[in-house]
Amino acid sequence: MIGFTAVDDVGRVVNPMIVAGQVHGGLAQGVGQAVLEGCVYDDDGQLLTGSYMDYTMPRADDLPNFDVATQSVMGASNPLEVKGVGEVGAIGSPPAVVNAILDALAPLGVENISMPATPNRVWQAIQASSVRQAAE
């Protein structure tokens, strides 16, 4: 991942630093959901991702620098004209990341991949791709 741009409408920005921080955190969660995080259970119901040795939390070195901005329309339902910023980063980021992966895989005819799109899953999708099989 080389870059990430997010623009959100949060209503009136009261504290820009906190807004940017919230968006950063949300983006990290969204990227985590898209490519890293997943709970896995075995057939007996035993959790296999029971610690951070197996459950991949997004960390700083998994992420690019974020480019964040707001494009605000004042909120009409409250006197502060705010809308809220708590989870906005996490909403658009998973589909953005997955669409970027599918865009990269489009020449191979891959149209769908489930989250988290781990290296193993991306490789499997490439192996199973119709274009690749036709070429072999």
Binding site: V40, L48, T49, D54, T118, P119, N120, W123, Q124, Q127
Partner: peptide
């Protein structure tokens, strides 16, 4: 295992 199949590891 949950991170990689044997085929992927071979690759």
């Amino acid at each position: 295992d949950i991170h990689a199949s044997a085929e992927y590891r071979a690759h």
